[in-house]
Design a protein around this nucleic acid. Structure first.
Length: 569
RNA sequence: CUCUCGGUAGCUCAGCUGGAUAGAGCAUCUGCCUUCUAAGCAGAGGGUCGCAGGUUCGAAUCCUGCCCGGGAGGCCA
């Protein structure tokens, strides 16, 4: 409807004021008495023409072309022009809605998009913070795919460096314990039970291959990195042990994610970036480019990147004085690798604790002469858990964190996903466990699902009574029901496209959640005050057709959220 | 100290590329099941949009200052 209204306006403006390319809004109204659509064009023109908006509005309206879909036009308030559509026009779009599968949404040229998300370190199970990013990333991928884009969901594995070594060390020590070796378990090591489980598996795989038979004094070090060095010396093949630990953690992570309806289709290993190819490894190549472009310098035996030249508050180290590359340096190489794969758009989904990294990473991309505007880094804020009205304290250090797996075991995948997605992602989220577990209208997930189930149940009941619903006949008889609430529902169904377009534009999911909740509410209300299995065939078909359109909205909306739309509850 | 995100109903939050009377849900109160799912519906009360200025026809929304709260600022990741 919007393009049609715009056309009328533009013609009228052209006629009265000679066209000028000005920007104005055409929006749905919030209040019935304002009609269906409204524009502020007269208010905008008033500024440029230095005339009273009401006079401009009147002039415009007087030269509007007559349209059969336009019931009437009114001027209101300071100079808004309100459009009232005929009932036919309002219900007209329903006809397309059943046929064209939201083609409005797929019109733009499809893009190749890379979404990197979760990418948590394979040093332990994923916790609820990662879970939020996981839900968001997967829903965003669904949304973009729904719009016709080609989407790759990628997970970047930090499988080298200090944290990886500490993981291996932690498992290694627990492994020794399984052979009744007395060890001192340093504070810096990972404390969780999962380390012991991993050690158990390591013992099954390696037997006593990494047992300290020579009784090395490797456990007397207070510093874990020294300890690790000793172990590497004592066991030349220790890298096999490291790989096993990482692999084992990644397996668990993949299992948890998959249970949570999160399915990456590509994994990139940090370690691979350092692999020798012809004569140089990829990582070195990227760092050399930075060097050649004169954005690096040596100081204190370390290699620095001049990020200050890119609005970062200070320069950053790339290679430490012990020759170890920093996380940041690896990340530059990884992002270069992303750009090399020719995507139209790159999306990073990061935890809020990384937000300080954005300027320096963008700086590095520019230093590599890459178009940093292609990359959009979205920030996911923290999640805190509330149980019985009280904050559940979590501490990673003490191993007291709640894992994603524990949470979904307790409240279920559906509710967890919805609660993660229903809040604007860059805002901190308070996750109320008690609320998420409720199975009544307090819980928006059930409320929405129930709306869908009710429609299915109507369908079943109709079938039981041997009524066959004819959708085409329903569409032709919509005028029988476009008198009151129905018009509002039709309007809401039409709004589905606005919501999806907005979500895609802003890379947000929560508007969809709010929308579904709203539409469900409208449906329940309608359901309560109406009979559906009418004796009159035309009326029955019309009502069912309307309700089937709603069903389609629920199905598609929930599908984007990767939440079930059950037929029975 | 610097950066960043917030402060909207008792609570949890939408709205923020300026628009008409600021919205939901929960909680509270009052009603509705002999009917195709009451896992539901109808109704009511509840607001200095943190404070103060500014920009203009018009500000919760934009700008400035201040107050309060979360988070981030490593040769950790």
């Amino acid at each position: 409807m919007k393009p049609e209204i715009r056309e009328i306006l533009l013609t009228s403006i052209e006629e009265n004021y000679k066209g000028s390319d000005l920007e104005f809004d055409i929006s749905r109204t919030k209040i019935k008495s304002h009609g269906n659509w409204s524009t502020n064009v007269a208010l905008i023109l008033a500024k440029a023409l230095k005339q009273k908006p009401l006079i401009i509005a009147e002039k415009l309206v007087n030269s509007f072309a007559k349209k059969e879909w336009l019931e009437k036009v009114e001027i209101a308030g300071p100079g808004f022009i309100n459009f009232f559509l005929t009932e036919e026009a309002q219900s007209h779009f329903l006809k397309n809605f059943f046929n064209d599968d939201l083609s409005f949404f797929k019109n733009e040229a499809p893009k190749k998009v890379l979404i990197e998300y979760v990418s948590s370190n394979p040093t332990g199970p994923i916790h609820i913070g990662h879970g939020r990013g996981a839900a968001f990333g997967s829903a965003l991928a669904n949304l973009l795919r729904f719009a016709g884009d080609e989407v790759i969901e990628e997970y970047y594995i930090n499988d080298r460096g200090l944290q990886t070594d500490i993981l291996a060390l932690s498992v290694f020590l627990r492994y020794q314990e399984l052979f009744k070796v007395n060890v001192i378990f340093p504070e810096e090591c990972y404390q969780g039970e999962y380390i012991k489980e991993c050690a158990f598996l390591a013992k099954e795989k390696f037997l006593d291959k990494f047992l300290d038979k020579k009784n090395l004094k490797i456990f007397n070090h207070s510093n874990p990195s020294d300890l690790i060095k000793e172990i590497y010396t004592a066991f030349p093949k220790f890298n096999e042990f490291v790989d096993f630990c990482v692999e084992s953690q990644m397996q668990k992570i993949k299992t948890d994610l998959s249970k949570f309806q999160v399915h990456h289709n590509n994994w990139v290993s940090e370690k691979e970036l350092y692999k020798e190819s012809t004569n140089e490894n990829f990582f070195e190549k990227v760092i050399n480019t930075l060097k050649n472009n004169k954005f690096t310098y040596f100081q204190d035996e370390a290699l620095w990147f001049k990020s200050k030249e890119f609005n970062d508050e200070k320069d950053r180290v790339l290679i430490r004085n012990n020759q170890d590359p920093t996380y940041f340096a690896s990340d530059i190489a990884y992002h270069k690798f992303k750009f090399d794969r020719d995507f139209d758009q790159l999306i990073n989904i990061w935890g809020a604790d990384h937000h300080g990294y954005i300027p320096r990473l963008n700086g590095a991309l520019e230093a590599l002469e890459l178009d940093s505007k292609k990359l959009k880094t979205l920030i996911i804020q923290f999640v805190s858990l509330i149980r019985s009205g009280k904050n559940v304290s979590m501490s990673t250090r003490k191993g007291e964190f709640i894992t994603l797996n524990e949470l979904i075991d307790e409240v279920g995948v559906e509710a967890t996903r919805f609660f993660f997605l229903a809040r604007k992602s860059d805002q901190a989220l308070e996750f109320d466990i008690d609320l998420a577990k409720k199975e009544d209208k307090n819980n928006p997930v059930y409320y929405i699902q129930y709306a869908h189930a009710r429609i299915c149940s109507l369908e079943k009941e109709a079938k039981k009574r041997k009524f066959i619903i004819n959708q085409d006949n329903g569409l032709n008889n919509l005028s029988l029901i476009t008198k009151g609430d129905e018009l509002e529902i039709i309007n809401d169904i039409e709004r589905f496209q606005d919501v999806l377009v907005q979500c895609k534009k802003d890379l947000e999911i929560h508007p969809l959640c709010f929308y579904l909740r709203e539409v469900a509410s409208k449906f329940h209300s309608y359901y309560n005050s109406n009979k559906f299995i009418e004796e009159d065939m035309n009326l029955r078909d019309a009502k069912f057709t309307l309700v089937f359109a709603l069903k389609k909205v629920f199905q598609q909306g929930l599908e984007i959220l990767s939440i079930d739309a059950p037929e029975k509850m």
